[in-house]
Nucleic acid binder design. Structure first.
Lengths: 201, 201
DNA sequence: AAAAAATGGATTGTTAACAATTTAATTTGA
DNA sequence: TCAAATTAAATTGTTAACAATCCATTTTTT
């Protein structure tokens, strides 16, 4: 989560790195995650690692079993995924509606930068980076519109994006986000919502 | 969360107790929560307390700030709440649809017991207990229909139920849940969904 | 030989001490 | 007197050691 911190702690750092790798598909489903292994990898003790794993558990990426540690959660069924998609869409459309009127030039600048990064990641055809930039872009307007609902949105989105077969067509991703961002810069809510619906599936 | 454990650890215990108290309105909004205080109260060290607080943070009940600890999250705005309600309703109706065909007599027995507890809590007019029993009842069919989405559902529901002005009318609560459970025992999806819509608002 | 019991290694759960940071109180300076 | 700088207390962040539990292997028992 890291809701606005200056210097991010070991825990936050570990959490972000692991989440990125999980999103990028670096671990297999049901694969157990060992605390000590991560601790030595990040050069810390098991404490911060445990904290990070607990957070990811609550996000639904990992599953926890007492005295057995965590493992990568198995993927959602098609039905479950469609429910999550609908919820995320509902939430994100609400956030867009709230965001557009209060968006400043600075916001537009930030969004342009994030779109730039996403485009660049698509060019490099790097799936982990694409997934991360994709989330970061959407997250921007969610966080601006409703900090309260940011963690809810993150949980849904991360769960959605895992096992992302759709992420093969980088041209399409770039195109879809181009369209969303253009609509946002025009403050055109209808168009932005429609573009979002085409993208979040 | 405690996704199926035999003996629950200090962390799980603390987490459940604190969540219950938060739902019951024992803490004020924005009130800071001190680790040491809880630790001595539960007779443990700060470790398990930290774990529990992190979990509740991810559920959205608490807010975390680096080096400053956690505090009770401020309540959702009316708009935000209506979005959460819509999401929860969507999710829970899906779960009902999945649950009804696979429900066994044992399930019906469990649900009846949970309803009994809710009714009893209403009789005692104990708000914390009513809130807890309410959640436990709904949670039952969610967990049975889709363990994957249980934590998502919990996050939405807990966030919804905090600051529960609606929970004043205990007769209505009992009535609404009576209706939902009756529809479930009849395996009447249409009726169950409608009763749910009247309840989750 | 098969099932049950015991063993040892690996892993998680918990603790207490220490380090780093924040917060409040106190002192200092203009 | 008021604001800035300094100190002290409170609080969180991290660590390493120890306890409890799980899991695979070996031994024992029938």
């Amino acid at each position: 989560m890291t809701i606005s911190t200056n210097r991010l702690s070991a825990r936050d750092n570990i959490c972000d790195v692991i989440r990125r790798e999980l999103i990028g598909g670096k671990f297999d489903f049901d694969q157990p995650i060992r605390e000590q292994k991560l601790a030595s990898r990040f050069g810390t003790s098991r404490g911060p690692v445990r904290d990070a794993l607990l957070r990811l558990t609550q996000e639904g990426i990992l599953v926890y079993e007492t005295n057995k540690g965590v493992r990568v959660n198995s993927p959602l069924s098609e039905e479950e995924r469609s429910v999550v998609v609908a919820m995320r869409l509902h939430l994100e459309k609400f956030c867009l509606k709230k965001f557009l009127p209060l968006a400043t030039d600075s916001d537009f600048g930030q969004i342009s930068i994030l779109l730039e990064r996403l485009t660049s990641a698509c060019d490099r055809a790097s799936l982990p980076e694409v997934a991360e930039c994709d989330l970061a872009l959407h997250r921007y307007w969610v966080a601006r519109a409703s900090p309260h609902l940011e963690s809810t949105w993150l949980g849904l989105s991360v769960r959605m994006i895992m096992k992302y077969s759709r992420l093969s067509d980088y041209d399409q991703i770039r195109e879809e986000h181009d369209r969303i961002v253009r609509a946002i810069l025009d403050r055109n809510l209808t168009h932005a919502s429609l573009s979002l619906e085409a993208n979040v599936i």
